[in-house]
């Protein structure tokens, strides 16, 4: 990761956050909670992949049809997130795999 990538990444991230800020309050709340959850779970490609911008695309469409955010994704927001990342391995899983064969290291 060179300096240029970091700057470029920051610009993109700011533009992404600006789109989030333009959403209605209920959408913003749910987006932020989703993002926090995903940061903890760590599906691959979270920070440089299409997952988060995709959610904003989807939310913008929901706003355009005049629906509230829970009408769009249902009350089980965590269930929605888990469906989203169902086939993406997480960084924790990759990490665990990289140390497997040395049992016990993760249990320290």
């Amino acid at each position: 990761m060179g300096i240029q990538d970091i700057i470029e990444g920051k610009k993109q991230w700011r533009a992404h956050l600006a789109r989030v800020k333009a959403l209605p309050p209920d959408y913003q709340i749910v987006y932020k909670e989703i993002q926090k959850y995903l940061f903890k779970i760590g599906p691959i490609g979270l920070l440089d992949g299409p997952l988060l911008p995709g959610i904003v695309d989807f939310f913008e469409e929901g706003v355009a049809t005049g629906r509230g955010v829970l009408e769009l994704i249902g009350p089980d927001v965590a269930g929605f997130c888990d469906d989203l990342i169902k086939d993406s391995p997480t960084y924790a899983e990759i990490y665990q795999k990289s140390i497997s064969g040395k049992p016990g290291t993760a249990e320290k």
Partner: peptide, 11 residues
């Protein structure tokens, strides 16, 4: 809900 359909479409 559409959220469920969205996750299916992504997959």
């Amino acid at each position: 809900v559409e959220g469920t359909v969205y996750t299916i479409l992504l997959r």
